[in-house]
Nucleic acid binder design. Structure first.
Lengths: 156, 156
DNA sequence: CAGAGACTGAGACTCAGTATCAATTAGAGG
DNA sequence: CCTCTAATTGATACTGAGTCTCAGTCTCTG
């Protein structure tokens, strides 16, 4: 965490930005909480801690953290974006349980390679991607309304 | 198109729903326009045609069309969802050009198979998935700010 | 063809996220 | 350590996609 805050400062400096108290508070809270946090969660947590940070500032800081490559932003269709530490962690994609909301990370380098195949095929220059599989996790399987279709079908 | 409207009616009936004029108008317009349309586009188009349909009804009808498996819903991060005909078309995923907004469809059965591997590995019951690659299309490549990184990195 | 229940739509509402702008603060240069 | 300026903050107003409400309307079954 210490290391990451240092990196945050470095990256800010590199862009001519200042390391202010609110920015530090947001970054620290995100790092110390881990997992997938939404902007509003962050605002509430900081308020509870007695170190409130304005809404606008939280959103602005999250944008900086994302742009600097320190955090990834994900939209699991719950109506708000969530943030997850990216720096120093291997790339991965997600399974999302539509019953309990659990987020499961997976790595599958073979899929990544096939993606490269696809982009090459279309002469497309990939910058980032989003690969999410929605369904029922191990624990919630029993509640699945129907057996899984041969292949996934709805997109979100 | 005739066939699809018939299917729409069938699926409505199957759920105890009525085929009303507004629902027919929405489905017809979506089918005749093709491509990826947002709710608001639809509302504008219908108004221009002199057959306006209320906002609430358009949204409600889109939900029905999606649930019935006739249309797929996608979120390319532009702040609104877009709808695309699903019935009678093969499953595919998308490349999205962050410069011109172009949507390119791709099929890669090998990725689908690897997805099945992944879900099996986690004892996860997949219901649907979302796989999008963002970047610069063939035409917009020149405008790419930087060469593509070794592997895609930011998620949305 | 009449009745019941489904459906519609104008408009109020929600809620994540953005814009504004006067007051505050980081931190470079002295 | 102080000063000065540009960057930053945050209360608040705003935006815009999507949802809710409910009185009036329509579908379609019997």
């Amino acid at each position: 965490m210490r290391v990451d805050l240092g990196t945050f400062q470095e990256r800010l400096r590199g862009r001519g930005l200042k390391l202010t108290r609110p920015r530090r508070l947001v970054a620290e809270k995100l790092l110390s909480t881990g997992g997938h946090l939404a902007a509003d969660d962050l605002i509430q947590l900081l308020r509870r801690d007695g170190t409130p940070v304005g809404r606008a500032t939280v959103y602005r800081t999250l944008a900086i953290l994302r742009t600097a490559g320190l955090f990834d932003e994900h939209d699991f269709g719950s109506g708000h974006k969530v943030y997850e530490r990216a720096l120093g962690r291997p790339h991965h994609d997600h399974l999302f349980c539509i019953s309990c909301g659990a987020v499961i990370e997976f790595r599958e380098p073979r899929i990544e390679r096939l993606q490269d195949d696809v982009t090459r095929r279309y002469r497309f220059t990939a910058m980032y991607h989003s690969h999410k599989i929605f369904g029922y996790c191990r624990r919630c399987r029993g509640q699945a309304r129907a057996p899984a279709p041969a292949r996934t079908e709805r997109h979100a």
